[in-house]
């Protein structure tokens, strides 16, 4: 794991008015997968949205690849950080290939054209996530497992440094969840990226992630995955 810091924040305060989570100090290194855990409504999704700039922070700031998010325009942000949400509605008629190709949108011109290089990146992303066999099928017709891979392929095509995933295994069975987390490990190791993944599964967090961050009662605590249980990070789940 390299020490290059991809995502940093200090004393970050997030929420929509009243603070949901306060004083979050966190850094994500290249090649690292961090699990984000906590009860429903604890602020996991809001924290992820604040990391990528969709929700402005109430206090503190977020730095991506050493640069404050505020110093970048939306398109520059999209070159470095992406949030993947599985709960997004799949529009009728849009095919898998068309959707994965949207990942190249931050690099396109005003008329949203795609170069030969863009098409090659889209193709490689589909191959990496093993979705090219159903590239022409409509997104709305896919199973949950297939769709989660397609959503990841789109984010991979975006070629970001930091990937944020909001409950990617929410709709997946055990084998597909395992395959997904293995894929995340594969991505950070081969693509020089860092991943923060929110999940409700302690087992996958401990098995596949390097560190675990728990958001509980407005505070965020973080520990290496192997020490998380001993340090009492899961006490909220057992109450």
């Amino acid at each position: 794991m390299s020490e290059k810091l991809l995502l940093e924040c200090e004393n970050l305060c997030v929420g929509y008015g009243p603070a949901l989570v306060d004083e979050v100090s966190f850094s994500l290194s290249c090649g690292e997968v961090v699990a984000l855990m906590g009860e429903n409504g604890s602020g996991k999704s809001t924290l992820l949205k604040t990391f990528c700039g969709i929700v402005p922070p109430l206090g503190g700031n977020v730095r991506v690849c050493g640069e404050s998010l505020e110093n970048w325009n939306l398109r520059e942000r999209a070159h470095h950080i992406a949030l993947v949400r599985m709960s997004v509605e799949s529009p009728a008629r849009m095919t898998v290939q068309e959707f994965v190709s949207l990942g190249r949108s931050p690099y396109s011109g005003m008329l949203d054209s795609r170069s030969v290089e863009d098409d090659a990146i889209v193709q490689k992303s589909m191959e990496l996530l093993d979705v090219e066999s159903f590239a022409k099928r409509p997104l709305a017709e896919l199973s949950d497992g297939e769709r989660s891979r397609v959503y990841l392929a789109e984010a991979v095509a975006q070629q970001v440094d930091v990937l944020l995933l909001d409950e990617p295994n929410a709709f997946l069975d055990i084998p597909r969840s395992r395959a997904l987390f293995r894929m995340l490990r594969n991505l950070v190791e081969n693509r020089n990226m860092g991943i923060v993944v929110s999940t409700h599964s302690i087992e996958y967090a401990e098995s596949y992630c390097d560190r675990i961050m728990v958001v509980n009662k407005g505070r965020a605590r973080i520990a290496p995955a192997k020490n998380a249980r001993a340090e009492g990070l899961f006490d909220w789940a057992e109450a």
Binding site: K49, C52, I54, N73, L74, R75, E76, R77, A78, H79, A82, L83, R85, V88, E89, P91, M94, F99, L102, G103, S105, P106, S108, M110, L111, D112, Q158
Partner: peptide
Amino acid sequence: VAGSIRYLNAARMGDDFARGLGVN
């Protein structure tokens, strides 16, 4: 309309998704 093609192509996935692709 043509100047907003990037938005139109992403808009079917929702406004947050479009923002995530760098669309104002």
